[in-house]
Write a protein that binds this DNA or RNA. Structure first.
Lengths: 206, 206
DNA sequence: CAGTAATCAGTGGCTAGGCCACCTGACAAC
DNA sequence: GTTGTCAGGTGGCCTAGCCACTGATTACTG
């Protein structure tokens, strides 16, 4: 079962791409400079000039660092160093999510959302009213969902939602979605668990 | 210390980058085309043209997929689909389940079951009939659920169900459960996804 | 004819320069 | 003090192109 290569055969020698070496180099730079969470890296143009590479390549290096969680790149702001993750129990599992087709993740998250909605509908009624009563503004997915999440509390479903959300983002702000969100909020307010769960089905387009 | 955002505050709404959407899109494409390990993706230039993006952006999307292990990009050759990892993903996460209150796990599995039931109800109708038609014997949870799982196919939800099942076993064989199972089978047979999902709510006593 | 070297077409890697969307902070107007 | 405006700096994305690498084909050599 071992992949022992013949001693006579030379290794293929996978060349490292420039942007990968760059990423490692920048990571070392962060370390050397003693940068901590929240600190900003120099702008791409400057960094590229100093390192003698094109901005495109440098940008890819930063993207690579971002994927690995070392930095966070914000449009119009810059590249911010990220505090190393507390590394909870989910990382291995979460890493596998990236390899799955998005449709699968969407379906899974829909199921989780439905479960959370159902739990939220069973929460204390005064809390529900305070959090979900309409205030005249159109609902957005993120806002509505934050309320539902708070009502549902922490738990396994909440953690699953966090993990899945990374790879199955919420829907856009369309009329159909707002209608669904209204129906969802309404069901949770009434304490109608079944209706709340049903409303979530297909919400993400899975 | 809590990062709890005020409910009054609007969502920060993190925009997704084009190359990230592209990566997800291509991942779905791989799935849709039924590509397996070793298969080659179309060349960058062609893909970029077909998708209406620049080659640079497409290349970044591919790099992202490579970082996540979905494909392997070789200079002078092309982008090759990678066989999914042996997936040591779930065990770490699974180990943590034992430490959680059972009620939490039950609620989570109910949500997963509902999602699976919904998926099963959308499966090919002839398969549904063959598998779920009544045969005179009283239904048991295990048998019914095996059928639903087969109809729903493999996927993220199925894996979650496997993991959760260890710590949240099915209900006993009572009259109430049999009634539910009949309703579930009936809904799946009719292809009524919403009803199938609703039937699962509370099935485990969560 | 067999084996080797040169060639070539197709692929990704990287560069250069530019435009646009976005965020922030300063400053004017109220 | 509060609000609205605006300019400067930032990353996102594009066009256009050259270069390096790979694999198969072709030409050459013994």
């Amino acid at each position: 079962m071992s992949e022992e290569p013949s001693p006579r055969r030379l290794t293929p020698l996978r060349r490292e791409r420039l942007y990968e070496s760059l990423a490692a180099h920048i990571s070392d730079f962060i370390e050397a400079q003693g940068l901590v969470g929240g600190d900003r890296l120099p702008p791409e143009r400057q960094l590229a000039a100093e390192l003698g590479v094109s901005r495109a390549t440098l940008s890819r290096a930063l993207a690579s660092l971002e994927t690995r969680g070392r930095i966070e790149v914000r449009h119009g702001v810059g590249a911010l160093v990220r505090e190393p993750q507390p590394a909870g129990g989910v990382p291995t599992w979460e890493a596998g999510l990236a390899q799955r087709p998005r449709s699968e993740v969407l379906v899974a998250r829909e199921a989780v959302l439905a479960g959370l909605a159902r739990t939220a509908a069973g929460a204390d009624s005064s809390l529900r009213v305070a959090m979900l009563a309409p205030d005249g503004r159109p609902r957005t997915f993120d806002h509505t969902w934050r309320c539902v999440r708070r009502l549902a509390g922490d738990g396994l479903l909440a953690e699953l939602d966090d993990a899945l959300a990374e790879h199955a983002p919420g829907p856009g702000d369309t009329a159909g979605v707002r209608e669904r969100l209204d129906a969802l909020a309404d069901a949770v307010l009434r304490g109608d668990a079944a209706a709340a769960a049903t409303t979530c089905q297909g919400m993400l387009g899975g």
